[in-house]
Design a protein around this nucleic acid. Sequence first.
DNA 1: GAGTAATTAGTAATAATTTCTAATTAGAAA
DNA 2: TTTCTAATTAGAAATTATTACTAATTACTC
Lengths: 128, 128
Amino acid sequence: MWRKVALERLRKAGYKITPQRLKLLDVLERIGRSHPSLREVHEAVKEEFPTISFSTLYSNVMVLRDLGLVELLHLGSETRVEVNVSPHVNVISGRRVRDLDDPELVREIERKVGGRVRFVNVVLEDEV
Amino acid sequence: MWRKVALERLRKAGYKITPQRLKLLDVLERIGRSHPSLREVHEAVKEEFPTISFSTLYSNVMVLRDLGLVELLHLGSETRVEVNVSPHVNVISGRRVRDLDDPELVREIERKVGGRVRFVNVVLEDEV
DNA sequence: GAGTAATTAGTAATAATTTCTAATTAGAAA
DNA sequence: TTTCTAATTAGAAATTATTACTAATTACTC
Ligand SMILES: [Mn+2]
Ligand SMILES: [Mn+2]
Ligand SMILES: [Zn+2]
Ligand SMILES: [Zn+2]
């Protein structure tokens, strides 16, 4: 679903559909929900398209961001790709990030903080 | 208050009380609540202690972190210092971060995500 | 006051991001 | 189908922030 929307939006915006871009969409459709780092995305794309450079991957992720198809999160020392662009809760424990889609919670937080929420990043204590 | 606790804990842990460390405590007592970046902390300390190196500042912030006196947040491309180490909500709009101390909200989130919360970083949409 | 381990500050190394550009190519036009 | 060209790619360089290293200095113990 995400991939289909992304492809359509790329076309509509006049971007060329290159093999590199198609693989990137495949990979994000598959592993995007894990909030992968840019380097993890690159590794995953390389498995199916071994010659793609980080440079190309990077610039294409920026294109997706400009089109509103992904957001970028900074976590630890790395940039993570967020494919779930609707306001939601990211539950972060160590390097793991999982989505909690809870519109009611988001609405309550918006009420309390007085602003439109983009993301709520809940950082958990490291497990003992 | 924070400064006093910090000084005491440094002493108890056997760290030497250097002028550089004292100025860092002063500065964090004063501007810590604004979640300053490491470079902002360095700039602020330099105003009162112009010869302090970033290196020294950095290593002293790491000492404070090891003692549980500060936490570090990654925001955009910079590392921010958090002096409020109790679980709370950081309301982030652009480069601004303000604290929302709302134990009830934190407890509700803990219940929903099933884990001990360290921080809740609420990222707001950029103002129009 | 002397001795010493911790600390400082300057520099180097690392790591991730971002920029740049010559060669290639997707897709429109002929 | 072939030609044309602006967009794209890939490699390398530049930038930026962090982290590591080390010789000289210093806070504290005795
Ligand atoms: Mn870090
Ligand atoms: Mn960034
Ligand atoms: Zn998410
Ligand atoms: Zn805070």
